[in-house]
Amino acid sequence: MDLALLAGTWISAVAQSRRQHRKRHPARLVTPSGMNASRSESSKLVAPEKLVPMSSLGSTGWWLVRFVPLLLVIIYAFWPTLVWAESTWRSEPDYSHGYLVPLLAGLLLANRSETFPGVRRRPSYWGVSLIILAILMRFASRLLYMDFLDGYAILPLIAGIVWVMLGPAAMRWSLPAIGFLFFMIPLPYQAETLLSWKLQGVATGLSTAILRVLGQPAVSEAHVIWIADQRLMVEQACSGLRIFIGVAALACFWAASIQRSWWDRLVLLLSVVPLAIFVNAMRIVAVGLLYQWVGSEGKRALIHDWTGYCMIPAAFGLLWLLKCYWQAVYRPVEQATARDFVHGLS
């Protein structure tokens, strides 16, 4: 008993002496310049820079004076590329959604305005690296005759300007909207051809299988479906590329808009490929069945066109139902602490 009492007294005395020593001699940190700094001073050295709202640095008109000239310079520099992209939107049905992409990107920024982190008081010159990357991409597009690369250079250029003027936090906040602009640039010809070819083959095989399930004597040969003695050609325009790109753009927009976990967003994005293939296959099946009842070429052309018009809304509707179902089944779990439990009892 005496030994335990002596040990406890000795431990308390040692602890008290250490506390007194810390008060008299606070911890010091040697900085690269060789100067000593206390712990409180060192924490100030490594503390992140405080961000401020945009309104504290100037009025809306002041920001417009800064950004509008930059926007005009970008439009002037990329005018040939923008004209090429607009002509593709107008002439190619697969890219007719390009007119809506900038508007949806702006809507995406508006939806995320409540989470805007703020801006830096000083320019962030690390963003110049992205601007240099955009310039190099433009040079490569001219040397290699790749127009699509010139279009994709807009993305790092905008990200670099935001990084320089507003800071890295604002750049990360705007990345979903900047990345969404990817869908307004037409795909490279080689990638478009390869993707269309693959989608044609998958759509042909799946449509043939569905027709057989429905009791039709369907046989596929390359990209041709034979239903009895009728020949149904799955052309490149019917490959489903338009619906694939449109559904992918909508899925990315929803994934960036909803306040869900990364797993929920990943499920939404991964559903694009099977959903687009399924809807396109159902269109081919509908055309094949209706062609057996209609022999007029004019009526067949009308059936072909109208089934194509209904394909995009049907795909969007299925994607919306999938999103609603996933949000209803897998709801986010609210985490409660012991303090919340105590307040709830009181």
Rank of each mutant, 00 (worst) to 15 (best):
A105G: 01
L51F: 09
M1K: 15
G240S: 03
I185G: 03
R300E: 15
L232F: 14
L6V: 04
L302A: 14
R300Q: 07
Q16P: 01
G246C: 02
A7C: 03
P156N: 13
R39P: 00
M184R: 05
P32Q: 02
S96E: 13
Q20H: 13
L45R: 15
P186I: 09
A153C: 02
W254A: 03
S91A: 05
E86Y: 11
S296T: 08
L322M: 10
G58R: 03
W84Q: 08
V68R: 13
T337V: 01
T307K: 02
V101Q: 04
D340S: 07
A77N: 03
W126I: 03
I284V: 05
G215H: 09
M54Y: 10
S271L: 04
G288M: 02
L269G: 00
P48D: 03
R28L: 14
P80R: 03
L100Q: 14
T204H: 05
L143E: 02
F278P: 00
S12A: 07
F182E: 00
I277F: 09
I312T: 11
M233I: 15
R331W: 06
L108I: 00
W163K: 00
L108H: 01
Y325L: 12
L289I: 15
G179C: 11
P53T: 09
G151S: 06
S196P: 00
G298D: 01
A47D: 12
Q292S: 04
R283M: 09
M1F: 10
D2A: 13
M1H: 14
V234N: 01
W263M: 14
S87K: 08
A237S: 12
R66M: 10
L82I: 03
A218H: 05
V164S: 06
I312R: 11
D340Y: 08
I225H: 02
W89T: 02
A170N: 12
L108K: 09
Q236D: 15
V162H: 02
V73C: 07
G240Q: 02
L108V: 01
R120F: 04
Y95W: 13
L194V: 14
A4D: 15
V164F: 15
P332I: 05
S257E: 05
G179Q: 10
R22C: 11
Y291T: 14
W79H: 09
V46R: 14
I225N: 05
P168A: 09
G344Q: 14
K323H: 13
L289A: 11
P26M: 00
W197V: 13
S12M: 12
A338D: 11
A105M: 00
W79D: 08
I277D: 11
I158M: 11
A203R: 08
A27M: 02
L214F: 05
L45K: 13
F183L: 07
A228S: 14
P168S: 07
Q236T: 14
S33M: 08
L104N: 02
Q236L: 15
R122E: 01
G34M: 06
R24W: 09
A249C: 12
L64N: 05
W262N: 06
E221T: 07
